[in-house]
Simulated scan of single mutants.
Amino acid sequence: MMKLADLEKGDKIYFLEGSPDTFTVQAKKDKFIVATAPLEKGVQYTIVDTEKNICGPHDRTFNAYDLSKKEDVTELLNDLIERKRGITLSRRHSANVALVLNLPKTLKGE
């Protein structure tokens, strides 16, 4: 059975609710996946921690990353792994993946 940790760049992550409901995996390293979805102005993003099975934004009030740029996605991912700048997944705004993701659809790889 496929797991979130098996997702690769270009795979889709589907949310149960919200707009947009489909995100594309932009980067993956260690236990983190960074996925984005286009918005009218910019992009929306989510970070998935495949070990803790949670997803959400990082814990910074202001986003220093332009996640429409590959370099910034890579920088965010590396900062999370290396805990640079003290950045982590937001505890306040994260959720259990089982409660917010459409796991059957995501893991089926549609």
Rank of each mutant, 00 (worst) to 15 (best):
M2E: 13
M2P: 15
M2W: 05
K3V: 04
A5M: 10
G10T: 12
G10I: 11
I13G: 07
Y14V: 15
L16P: 07
E17K: 15
P20A: 13
D21M: 10
T24L: 14
V25H: 04
Q26R: 14
K28M: 04
K28V: 13
K29W: 00
K29E: 15
D30A: 08
K31A: 09
F32A: 07
F32T: 06
T36E: 02
A37N: 09
P38W: 04
K41M: 08
G42C: 03
V43E: 09
V43A: 12
V43S: 13
Q44A: 10
Y45S: 05
I47H: 00
V48C: 00
D49P: 02
T50I: 10
E51M: 04
K52C: 01
I54R: 09
D59E: 03
T61Q: 01
F62V: 15
N63C: 13
A64P: 09
Y65H: 03
D66F: 11
L67N: 00
S68I: 07
D72N: 10
T74C: 04
T74M: 09
E75Y: 09
E75R: 13
D79W: 02
I81L: 01
T88K: 14
L89G: 04
H93P: 00
S94Q: 03
N96M: 00
V100M: 05
V100E: 02
V100D: 02
V100G: 09
N102C: 08
N102D: 15
P104F: 02
P104Y: 11
T106A: 11
